[in-house]
């Protein structure tokens, strides 16, 4: 892994197999690899690559669009307002596909299992559900924004019983 092929690593480990050592560290200017005996036999490797030079910036780094954590706007007594979040970080989409109508708008009435948005994480689309019956009162993020599990996506006013 360092500047060795896997065949050369195997050769080194074969020599070590017969020795009493349990650990071998190889280090170059660019990388360090630590080989250790595995608990169940065989060997493990742990690699660390050193940072030698900074990344070249092709253009002025425009700030990636990031969400600013939103202040809670509801008053403490307003317990009927529910915050909708994503359990995974990812890219927030309001519609099932580009150009299509959004799942919901402010004032839309939804049920617990209504899909209100999708969040794309690692190329997988995950549906975001309303979580309760009621009315959407606020959409807090913009289509295409990156969201974290802490980000409030939407607020919903729970419908009376």
């Amino acid at each position: 892994m360092l500047d060795f092929s896997s065949e050369e690593v195997a050769e080194i480990l074969r020599l070590l197999d017969a020795a009493f050592h349990d650990e071998l560290t190889l280090e170059s200017k660019r990388r360090r690899v630590v080989f250790r005996r595995g608990a169940a036999g065989g060997w493990t490797q742990e690699t660390h690559t050193f940072q030698l030079r900074p990344v070249v910036l092709l253009e002025r780094a425009e700030e990636p669009r990031r969400n600013i954590a939103l202040e809670a706007t509801r008053s403490p007594s307003d317990t009927d307002v529910i915050e909708i979040r994503s359990s995974l970080p990812g890219t927030f989409y309001r519609a099932p596909k580009p150009g299509a109508a959004p799942f919901v708008e402010v004032e839309s009435r939804v049920h617990e299992h209504s899909v209100v948005a999708i969040v794309e994480t690692m190329k997988l689309m995950n549906s975001i559900h309303a979580g309760a019956k009621g009315k959407i009162v606020e959409i807090c993020v913009t289509n295409g924004d990156f969201v974290e599990p802490t980000t409030v996506l939407m607020r919903l006013r729970r419908a009376g019983p």
């Binding site: 896997s6 690593v9 195997a10 480990l13 060997w43 493990t44 490797q45 690692m122």
Partner: peptide, 26 residues
């Protein structure tokens, strides 16, 4: 991140201890 090593074993990876796995890619 500990990966296996030894005869007949090859590991192709960009992951090291402390590596970030961003949500943007596969």
């Amino acid at each position: 991140a500990l990966f296996p090593a030894g005869e007949g074993v090859r590991v192709d990876t960009h992951i090291e201890s402390g590596a970030h796995v961003p949500p943007f890619y596969d």
